[in-house]
Every structure is written in structure tokens, then in C-alpha cells.
């Protein structure tokens, strides 16, 4: 059986919104990083769905890129989180507001 591509897009949208809401409401930076991962995957899903709809391989190529980018981002992000924790002894982003104008 084949799924209509709208379902895929809808799932991508739902995942994206979940990630976004998580990013906005969570204060713990680990969870924020995870939310970002969810959003990235949501956009990846949207690309694959698009590629499936148009019978084009570019969507999957794009997903491979996103995957690599996400891996790199996580490694940098985790390193920053460790530094943040060393400095502030907390993972709460609202505590780390030294750069306020």
C-alpha cells in the first residue's frame, strides 16, 4: 500500500511543532538540544516526502546532508553545554543571561 504524501507532510509538521514548542518552553538546555534534533528530523522528513512526491532523489540527498549537519551540531552543542555547566553550575538557560544589553 502507498501512503498519500500529505500524511508524511502532516507528520513532519507535527514533529516540527513539537520540537518548536519544546524549544520555547523548556529551560534545560539538554532538552532544548533534543528539541532542535526533532525539528531537524521533521524538516528531513519533509524533504523525503517531497522527493517521494516528485519521484526525485534530491530529497534523500538533502536528508543525508541534514543528518551529517545534525551530527556535527550535536557534537559542538554538547561541548558548549559542558562549558556552560562548568561556568554556571547549571543547565538552566535563563541563568546564563550575561549577554543582556
Amino acid at each position: 500500500m502507498t501512503l498519500p504524501y500529505e500524511t508524511g507532510l502532516m507528520l513532519a509538521l507535527i514533529l516540527f511543532v513539537i520540537g518548536l514548542v519544546g524549544l520555547l518552553v523548556r529551560r534545560n538546555i539538554i532538552f532544548m538540544l533534543m528539541s532542535v534534533e526533532i525539528m531537524l528530523n521533521a524538516s528531513g522528513l519533509a524533504f523525503i516526502t517531497g522527493g517521494y512526491r516528485w519521484g526525485n532523489v534530491d530529497g534523500q540527498v538533502m536528508f543525508a546532508f541534514i543528518l551529517v549537519m545534525a551530527a556535527a551540531e550535536v557534537s559542538v552543542g554538547l561541548a558548549l553545554i559542558i562549558q556552560l555547566y562548568k561556568q554556571f553550575k547549571t543547565l538552566d538557560t535563563d541563568q546564563a543571561s550575561n549577554l543582556k544589553g
Binding site: L24, M32, D94, N98, L99
Partner: peptide, 14 residues
């Protein structure tokens, strides 16, 4: 506009 730079990450995201 300076007051919008409150140093809160989530605020910027919003």
C-alpha cells in the same frame, strides 16, 4: 531596542 537584548535564549527564539 536595547531592552530586547535581555540575554534570555528562549526570548530570542520566540
Amino acid at each position: 531596542f536595547g531592552s530586547s537584548q535581555n540575554g534570555r535564549l528562549r526570548w530570542y527564539l520566540a
